[in-house]
């Protein structure tokens, strides 16, 4: 299945937050660890609400966590 057109820097941001684990982030935003893993790997585009919750955890605006690249779906 093609990657989603939404890229993200969650892995890097977690690293910058004292190597926050996927489980810790999942607990903070109210999803399962598998969902965070799927988002990081580009296998799932989160809903707008979840995207905002993730951005809020890192105290960043949405566009600094997620970027939209429609070209990625053509790969």
């Amino acid at each position: 299945m093609a990657k989603t057109p939404i890229n993200n820097d969650i892995r890097k941001l977690r690293f910058n937050q004292d190597e926050m684990t996927q489980q810790q982030l999942a607990d903070k935003v109210g999803v399962t660890r598998q969902t965070i893993a799927a988002i990081e790997n580009g296998k799932y585009s989160p809903t707008l609400e979840l995207a905002f919750r993730i951005a809020q955890v890192f105290s960043l605006p949405l566009e600094e966590v997620f970027t939209y690249n429609p070209e990625d779906t053509k790969k």
Binding site: V31, T35, A38, Y44, P46, T47
Partner: peptide
Amino acid sequence: EPSFSDERD
């Protein structure tokens, strides 16, 4: 067992 199913589930 996960106690809830999230939006992806």
